[in-house]
Each structure stands twice: as C-alpha cells, then as structure tokens.
C-alpha cells in the first residue's frame, strides 16, 4: 500500500527529477501513447464541462467554491506543512514516511502548480483579444462613427501577430543566430513592427504623462490648506534632493559653516531629505502597505472560503 502511494501519487505533478522515470502520469514524447493519453484527458475535461452545463442551479455555488478551495488549499498546505529537509535531495535518497513524502511532494509540485495560473491567465487573456476583435469588426461592418480607425487597428493587429509568429517559427526552425545573420523578411517585419513601432509608441505614451504632470502641478499645487502646504513642501524638498548639483552646492555651503559640527551637518539637504525619508516617508508608506496587506489577507481568506460573492448563484 505504501509503495503504491509512492509510485502512484508522488510522481503526479511532481515532475522534479531531471530525467523522470516513466509512470502512469506520463508517456514518451512523439509516441501514439502520449497522444492517446492527451486525447483521453481532453475528452474527460470536456466531459466535465458538459456535466457542469447540465448541473442543477443549486449546485453551482458549491461547485465553484470547491474549485477555489482546492486551488487555495495547495498553498495553504505549503505554508503550514513541515518543510522538507532539502528539496534538492535525489528521490532515491529521500527519507521515508508519510509526512516526509507529502512535504517533498508539496515542494516538488510548487513549480508545477505555479504554472497553473500562468496557463489559465493566458487562456483568459485570449478572451480580451476576442472581445477587441469582435467590437471593431462590428464597428467596421456597421460603418459606425470613425470605422476607418477600427480598420487601422485590425490591420495593425493582424500584421503584428503574423510577423511575430512567422519570425518566431523561423527562429525555431533555423536558430536565432542564423536569423540574426540572414535577416529574412520575417525578421524585418517583426523588428520594424515590434521594435521600431510598438516599443517606441509605448515609450512615447508613457512619456506623455510628463507634460500632463507639469500642467496639473502648476494648476493644482496651490497652498490652499494645511495638507496642500505640507505636500508641496515635502515634494519641493524631494525634488531638490534629486538634483545632484543642488545637493552638492547646498551641502558644500553648510559644510563651510562647520564640517566637523554634528549639529550644523544636520542642515545639509541630504540630511534633511534623509530624515524625512527615514522618519516620515517610510513609516507613512509602511502604514499604507500594512493596510493593503491586511486587506489582501482578509480578502484572500474570504475568497478561499467562499465568503465573498464569487461563486455561481
């Protein structure tokens, strides 16, 4: 029984060994066996989906609650369960016993479970692209206001996706070094669209905020209340402290009054800014952070235990 537990359950998800042995959870690549197993698993998954579609209304909330609980349970166990002595220990040299087995299994499964959210997020992000395409295709089809801009968007999207995929496939087939040497059309297209346009536009978009921040500060940064005055003074000191030339000049001036006098040296710009940073700014931000942390912890527990309204109804 014990051997059965080890051989059947431990390798499940725990794909840690560099050269994993074959077991019921895997199959050699490129063989009909792996394709058959994958096919059966997908069929089973879609079967589950069909069962969910047919599920009675009263079961919806418990079903989604169970999924959430099981997903969270893994990480809670990782935190609460005794840690393995050293997760790098080769499988055959690991200590034996239920607790040790579970702790090693948990440690080995972390990289695997961590991937679940990556993969599911990727599947869900596809939904965003799907919605964007749907909205803009409808706008073009119905010739709504500014429909030519939707055409621009769709053409840019198709071009980027095509060249991105084409270049990626070429690199996989020929090797990155050869592509960088030969520069086929795919490389030009991808480089121009991605590096020459998308990246530059992203940087330009982010940099636009500089102009808005200047205009907003000029208009809104007025000493109308105690809070605004404090905010303005702190911002002024912070900005002065970011200018090396100002800091060096100011501090030099203070040093000329008494370089060896600890009291005088408290008035250097770096000391004043450092005092504000260490004793006012950091605890302020820390308090905000604690607040956010407590909120996240409470929200995490509520979600995990289905106390939040997330499940079906």
């Amino acid at each position: 029984m014990e051997a059965g537990w080890r051989h059947a359950v431990i390798p499940w998800l725990a794909q840690a060994p560099a050269a994993p042995a074959l077991n019921m959870w895997n199959a050699p690549a490129g063989t009909p066996e792996i394709w058959m197993k994958v096919g059966i698993a997908m069929l089973a998954g879609f079967g589950l989906l069909a069962a969910l579609i047919a599920a009675p209304t009263r079961l919806r909330r418990p079903i989604s609650g169970a999924f959430i609980f099981l997903a969270g349970l893994f990480w809670v166990l990782v935190f609460l369960f005794p840690k393995p002595i050293d997760s790098q220990t080769p499988h055959e040299q690991r200590p034996r016993g239920f607790v040790q087995d579970v702790s090693f299994w948990l440690a080995d499964a972390i990289p695997v479970v961590s991937n679940f959210s990556n993969i599911l997020t990727a599947f869900i992000l596809g939904l965003g692209v799907f919605s964007l395409v749907r909205i803009h295709l409808m706008r073009v089809a119905k010739k709504q206001n500014d429909w030519p801009f939707s055409v621009v968007l769709l053409v840019s999207m198709v071009a980027m996706a095509t060249f991105g995929y084409w270049d990626w496939k070429t690199r996989l087939d020929l090797g990155g070094a050869k592509v960088d040497e030969a520069w086929p059309l795919a490389a030009y297209g991808k480089d121009l669209l991605f590096d020459g346009m998308l990246q530059v536009m992203e940087a330009a978009m982010f940099s636009l905020i500089a102009f808005f921040i200047l205009s907003a500060a000029y208009r809104a940064f007025r000493i109308r209340s105690v809070e605004a005055t404090i905010l303005l003074c702190a911002a002024l000191i912070a900005m002065l402290n970011l200018m090396g030339a100002v800091v060096v000049t100011w501090d030099g001036m203070i040093e000329s009054f008494g370089k060896d006098n600890a009291f005088v040296m408290n008035f250097t710009l770096s000391s004043v800014a450092g005092f504000i940073r260490d004793n006012l700014q950091t605890p302020g931000i820390r308090a905000i952070d604690f607040g956010i942390g407590l909120g996240a912890l409470a929200m995490g527990l509520r979600l995990w235990l289905s106390l939040e309204r997330v499940g079906g109804n």
Binding site: S87, P111, S114, S117
Partner: peptide, 20 residues
C-alpha cells in the same frame, strides 16, 4: 516566464525545476 508571482514562487522553492 509568464506570471511573476508563480514564477517567483517556483524559483524560491526550487530554481532548477523552475527553469528546467
């Protein structure tokens, strides 16, 4: 590596497996 949280967890737990 997509998903910063998941990847950082995996790296902290077992770097070799995380980037296998």
């Amino acid at each position: 590596f997509p998903n910063a949280e998941g990847t950082s967890n995996a790296i902290a737990a077992n770097f070799k497996t995380a980037v296998a």
